[in-house]
Simulated scan of single mutants.
Amino acid sequence: MHDNTSFDVPTVDISPYLADTPDPAACAEVAAQLDRACRDVGFVQIVGHGIPESVQADLAAALDEFFALPIDTKKAYRRPGENRGYAPPKSESLSMSLGVASASAMNDFYEAITVGSEASDFPGLDLPEVSYPHNTWPVAAPSFREPVEEYFCRAQALSRTLMRAFTDALELEAGYFDTLVDHSIEVLKMNNYALPESEIEMADDLTGMGAHTDFGILTVLWADRVPGLQVLGGDGRWHDVQPAEGALLVNLGDALARWTNDRWRSTIHRVDPPVVDGRIVRRRSAAFFFDGNHDAVIETLPGCVAAGETGYPPITVAENIAAKLAGMKGGVAPAGLREAERVLAAHT
């Protein structure tokens, strides 16, 4: 059952944090709005984010150029087991990142191409290749790289602005997260929901992208304004979400949930096959994952464990990501996750 009753993804204008001389009162109001959104929903619509429409349009054109290539050409950029390169349809299962099996092992029908931060981006640091692998840029799509890199840089800057606002919202001292994100793992996963636009009979086990939480600190999502994205509400039901005009969707990842001991939750979400009037429609998205330093230890923040509560055990960012990727790409399910219990308890 898909029900939107009493469910709303709030919209927050973060432009006060982007002002040349930020006004403390205006920033405090933004921080309070973000705190409410992160407590109540875990998703927020961001406006006043400073990423021009032209940059977003160029990103969309880059996606179109790459995904229009023949499947065999795209597969030349495949890197199985790594969080880089091309992933063809039905090669991943995001629900398995939580240890929740779908009807068939690898049934997510989206295709994707992923790029991210490389070890060479941080000269002087001896960073592990497994967390900061080199990128594979598709030379068969010559106009792809430049607009993708431009959007990547813009999303990086936006993520760091959001970290300043989150620091205020959590009432932490200024710069608290700086040493935890100064060589952050950052990944841009560009998705194409790859079934052709057509009338189809929906199979019961067909999923666009299985139910999952994101792995890192936060995610900035650009997406077409078409159906598909669904968020698991506190009522245990799935609710449809589409980005508002001019907005980017931001959601929390597992690292922030663990840091705050679920004061802020990494909200479970999925993508159903995008269907309008009985027809599959095209849906594109680009998720920028701001994950934190590979060696940053995730342990409960000051003030986030009440008397009688137990915090999450410490884990590094890299360990947390590795466990989730093993499930998503290799079908090796992580055990004992709080998020998995919420997925299994959800109404369908």
Rank of each mutant, 00 (worst) to 15 (best):
V41Q: 07
G42L: 04
G42T: 08
F43P: 09
V44A: 05
V44I: 12
V47Y: 11
V47F: 12
V47H: 11
H49K: 06
G50H: 11
G50V: 13
G50F: 11
I51P: 00
P52S: 15
S54I: 11
S54L: 14
V55W: 08
Q56L: 15
A57R: 10
L59A: 13
A60N: 15
A61H: 01
D64V: 05
E65I: 07
E65D: 09
A68V: 11
P70W: 04
I71A: 14
I71C: 07
K75S: 12
A76G: 14
Y77W: 04
R78Y: 07
G85S: 11
G85Q: 09
Y86V: 05
P88E: 02
P89M: 04
S91H: 12
S93L: 08
S93Y: 01
M96V: 05
L98I: 12
G99H: 10
V100Y: 04
A101G: 15
A101W: 11
A101T: 12
A103Y: 13
A105G: 06
D108I: 09
Y110C: 11
E111G: 03
E111K: 02
T114Y: 10
V115K: 00
G116K: 08
E118R: 13
A119H: 07
A119K: 08
S120Y: 01
S120P: 02
S120R: 14
D121N: 09
D121A: 09
G124S: 10
L127E: 03
L127P: 02
P128S: 14
E129W: 00
S131Y: 00
S131M: 02
Y132H: 06
Y132P: 04
P133K: 00
N135Q: 02
W137K: 05
A140L: 05
A140D: 13
A140C: 01
A140I: 00
P142Q: 12
R145P: 01
R145G: 04
Y151E: 13
A155C: 06
Q156L: 13
Q156E: 15
T161F: 05
F166A: 05
L170N: 01
L172Y: 07
A174Y: 00
D178M: 00
T179H: 07
L180C: 01
L180I: 00
V181W: 02
H183F: 08
H183Q: 02
H183D: 03
